[in-house]
């Protein structure tokens, strides 16, 4: 219905600047039967923050797993489409090779080593980052961005708070010297003001480390704050995309993802109805 009206989403559509990551027409199938992601195309331009929004089961995590090479772990495979990173096809490569290309994932769960100290958590990360001088310099810069971590250097990571864990996970990922940092559910289980604060630091890190960032989020409101471009996924497809202003101003996006609609129609039953009616789209 309205959410797609007047919008043409085509995989070949160009975003400003050269893309560091290009996903085209991706189709992922679990156990050879269940189609989890269908015809997903997205681009992450150099030095930009792109967000993929959507509810549980929308296919966000599957897309991330396809990009980072973790599909075989769950008996899933890419059936169609391609994933290119800086011009090279990386679809179907094993995770460690993808990590060496410079794609680093901060996973949704189990993102730090709880039995190691904060410092050990950091020094364990060194893919692509072999030069000690470079590594030390980056570690110091990260302590600058996350002073809370510097204060807890010698503490076991298992004792960190949720926000500090997220900081540590991001810092650990950055020490692998990525070109593209993928953060899966930054906001998960964190207080809203903390999420806001973390988002700001993500933006700061983008400039300081000169990287591109792909944010996979349920918390659309805070992700849109810092993103340059956003995609909305639903039922394994991308149903809407655009600049933050476009996302923010679109009435249906407001209603369903930002929770700030306003025609008084707030019944959850109607929401479901609405979704079912446009399932044909794709």
């Amino acid at each position: 219905m309205a959410i797609t009206a007047g919008l043409q989403v085509s995989p070949t559509r160009e975003i400003e600047g050269s893309a560091i990551l290009t996903v085209a027409n991706l189709e992922v199938v679990y156990s050879r039967v269940i189609v989890a992601v269908q015809g997903v195309s997205l681009k992450v331009p150099e030095h930009s923050i792109v967000t993929v929004l959507g509810t549980n089961g929308a296919g966000k995590s599957t897309t991330v797993r396809a990009i980072s090479g973790f599909l075989p772990v769950d008996d899933a495979e890419i059936r169609k489409g391609s994933i290119h990173f800086r011009g090279q096809s990386i679809g179907g490569l094993p995770p460690y090779q993808i990590a060496r290309f410079g794609i680093v994932l901060v996973p949704e769960r189990r993102k730090i080593f709880e039995t190691l100290t904060v410092w050990d958590n950091l020094r364990i990360a060194h893919v692509r980052n072999d030069k000690p001088s470079n590594w030390n310099q980056q570690a110091e810069r990260l302590f600058g961005v996350f002073p809370a971590l510097a204060a807890r250097r010698e503490q076991l990571a298992g004792y960190l708070s949720g926000g500090e864990r997220q900081m540590l996970a991001i810092a650990q990922g950055l020490l692998c010297d990525p070109k593209l940092l993928i953060v899966d559910e930054l906001s998960l289980g964190l207080a809203p003001n903390l999420v806001h604060d973390l988002m700001e630091r993500i933006q700061q890190l983008r400039h300081e480390f000169g990287i591109s960032i792909l944010l996979i989020e349920q918390d659309a409101l805070s992700a849109i704050e810092i993103a340059d471009y956003g995609y909305i996924m639903e039922g394994g497809r991308i149903v809407f995309e655009g600049s933050p202003e476009k996302l923010r101003n679109h009435k249906d996006v407001q209603e369903f993802y930002l929770g700030s609609g306003g025609d008084g129609r707030t019944s959850y039953r109607e929401v479901k109805q609405y979704r079912r009616s446009r399932r044909w789209w794709g």
Binding site: A99, L105, P107, R110, F113, T115, N129, Q172
Partner: peptide, 11 residues
């Protein structure tokens, strides 16, 4: 503790 994460971090 977490072989998957270790692999991702270049070990």
């Amino acid at each position: 503790e977490n072989a998957l994460l270790a692999a991702q971090r270049g070990i």
